[in-house]
């Protein structure tokens, strides 16, 4: 067992534990904290995949912005103040569906015959990534920024109190 594998299993275990915590925690704030844990662990997975740039983006956007936003909304919707069940009545079906999907995806991942290299990572340099992003993918990039702008305005309009409220 090489040290890389040891690190992978550790990071993977943290990821899975964090994710499980998100979906089973009895307290919504605990769920949010588990989410941060899972997201940071996924950043670790990205590093293992030698996608350092994405790991940094992951930590900045998810670990920072998204979780903060979620915590804010929890506060605004006073989820904690209302004593009520967090899970719906179709939990058994959910477990069944999730289990079936897990079995299928593991089966697909293991049994498929992947074309090309499956044992070794080829590192993609930052420079090439940036180059491609602003040359080949320039139009989608600009469209994505437009989407972000629209989402920003939309979120403001949705969340703002109307007069008389």
């Amino acid at each position: 067992m090489s040290y890389e594998e040891v690190i992978f299993y550790f990071v993977a275990a943290v990821t899975v534990l964090g994710a499980l915590g998100v979906v089973v925690a009895r307290n919504v704030v605990h769920s949010a904290l588990f989410l941060i844990l899972a997201l940071l662990a996924v950043a670790g997975v990205f590093i293992l995949l030698s996608a350092e740039f994405l790991a940094i983006v992951q930590i900045l956007i998810y670990g920072g912005a998204v979780t903060i936003l979620i915590l804010f909304v929890m506060m605004l919707t006073r989820v904690r103040d209302m004593p009520q069940a967090l899970d719906g009545p179709q939990r058994p079906f959910a477990a069944l569906a999730a289990g079936a999907f897990l079995a299928l995806s593991v089966l697909a991942a293991v049994s498929s015959d992947w074309p090309g290299e499956t044992e070794k990572i080829t590192v993609v340099p930052f420079r090439e990534l940036g180059d491609a992003l602003f040359r080949i993918w320039a139009v989608p990039f600009e469209v994505a920024s437009l989407v972000l702008l629209v989402a920003l305005i939309g979120a403001i309009i949705l969340a703002r109190s109307e007069e008389g409220e």
Binding site: G88, F93, L104, L107
Partner: peptide, 20 residues
């Protein structure tokens, strides 16, 4: 909403089985 979501997931699983 959860009922609809369950239906979607069931459909995806059935399709996945068919394709496999």
């Amino acid at each position: 909403l959860p009922n609809y979501a369950l239906a979607i997931v069931t459909g995806v699983i059935v399709l996945a089985i068919v394709f496999m």
